[in-house]
Structure formats: C-alpha cells, structure tokens
Design a protein around this nucleic acid. Structure first.
Length: 216
DNA sequence: GTATTGGCGGATGACACGCT
DNA sequence: AGCGTGTCATCCGCCAATAC
C-alpha cells in the first residue's frame, strides 16, 4: 500500500484520518471551483491591502475582474478557515495566517462545515465582535507601510477577458462533445459484441433477454 | 445492480446595520 | 422609511463509499 498524502493543514486528533470519501478540496488542498491559484493569491493580497470585507474597494481596483462579492466572500471563508468574518472586518491581515491557526483548532465546541469553523453559539454580540476585532488588530494586523506597499495586478481589459472566457467555453464544449462521442462509440461496440456472442450461443434469444430485463 | 448513507460545497434567503 | 451592503444559517444537489 502506498503512503497516503496528508496535507499540512490537517488537524491532529480524531479527524487526523484521510477517509476514502473525503473530497479533494477538503483541508484546503484544492480551490473552490471557479478559482485558480493565482486568483486566490490576488484575493489574499487584495484583502491585505484594502482590509477584510472591503469588497467595494477590491471590485473598484478590478484586480479580480468578474468575481462577485459572494464569490470573494466564500473564498475568503476558505482561506480564513471559518465562516464568520465579522471579527476581522476592515483589518489588514494575511488570511492564511488565521487559516493555519483555525486548521489546528479541535474540540467539542468546534463545528466545521466545508472545513470552515461555523458559529454554534448564536450570533456574536457587538461588544464581543469589537473585543475580538481589537485583539486580532493587535495580534495579526500588518503595518500600514507594509499594506500600502502591496501591489495588485493591473486591471485586465474587460473585452479581452470576455474573449478569453468565450474561447475557454468553446474549448470545453468541444471536449464535452469528444467525450460524449467516445461514450457512444464504446456503447455501440459493447452492444455489437453482445449480439455476436448471443448469435453464436443461440441459447439467449431476444425474448429471454426481454424477460430478464423485465424481472429487473 | 440498486438503495442508502455521509459529507462537500455552492446557492439562497433572512437578517442586521449604516447611510441618505 | 427605504435602500444597499455584508454576514450568517440553512437548503439542496452531487458524488463516492458502503450495504444489501
């Protein structure tokens, strides 16, 4: 048996088992559909520069052209390793640092969904959010000099992006067509083989096959 | 071969809050 | 009060493993 790769982010304790039905995206090994690795790094830099939750500024910068607030928020949750982002609102910090810490959290009070820690104790009070915010600011926020110096990629020409996406769509459609044709061909070959063997055998006639099919 | 189960992950609706 | 924005909880489709 070959060694099973266990991601670094996998927690210790009872869940430190790679089950056969764990999806590849579990443990943040892969990205959310629709996100490429460079895009994730741009989002990481963008939240470090503009502050977590400042989606309007990120959209305005056009560094992630085509991404919606919902998409960015979902990807941020994956990076942070928790669903609730209110306690980080506006902070200039590296979401991967928080994600690394959250990935190691274990215990009866830790409930996860999509590998993100979800809130189980009701909504946080404004005071609690404020308290956590100040704590995170002290502990994790990078210096102003640092986040101001972050450079984001120049906005791409929307027309060029559209053309590229159309090309990608055409490529995927062609690939789908090829796969469908391949399946059809394989089915036809299988069917012709079974017809051949039954005609040689002679014992399995159409009626018998139909009876067998009906019994199923 | 089919049904059941467990879990992932995107979509969505409800809600809170700030602004005008 | 109405609107826009952001957050959070829940729903539901899909997939793979397992049971029968």
């Amino acid at each position: 048996m070959t060694d099973v790769y266990k991601p670094r982010s996998m927690p210790v304790g009872a869940r430190n088992v790679l089950r056969s039905n764990d999806s590849a995206s579990l443990w943040n090994c892969t990205l959310s559909p629709g996100w490429t690795e460079p895009e994730v790094h741009i989002l990481r830099k963008a939240v470090m520069k503009f502050g977590i939750g400042n989606w309007a500024k990120i959209i305005e910068s056009q560094c992630l052209f085509g991404k919606t607030i919902a998409q960015m928020n979902l990807q941020l949750q994956r990076m942070l390793g928790q669903q609730s982002t209110a306690e980080f609102a506006g902070l200039h910090l590296d979401p991967f640092v928080i994600g690394e810490i959250n990935s190691k959290k274990q215990g009866p009070g830790i409930k996860r969904k999509n590998n993100c820690i979800v809130n189980t104790g009701g909504k946080l009070t404004r005071e609690e959010i404020k308290r956590r915010l100040l704590e995170h600011k002290r502990t994790y926020e990078i210096s102003e000099e640092e986040w101001r110096s972050i450079e984001l990629p120049k906005p791409e020409d929307p027309g060029a992006v559209l053309i590229a996406k159309k090309d990608e769509l055409k490529m995927l459609e062609d690939e789908l067509l090829r796969v469908v044709q391949k399946i059809q061909k394989a089915r036809e070959e299988r069917r012709s083989k079974s017809v051949d063997s039954s005609s040689v055998d002679g014992s399995v006639d159409d009626e018998a096959r139909e009876t067998k099919r009906r019994r199923k």
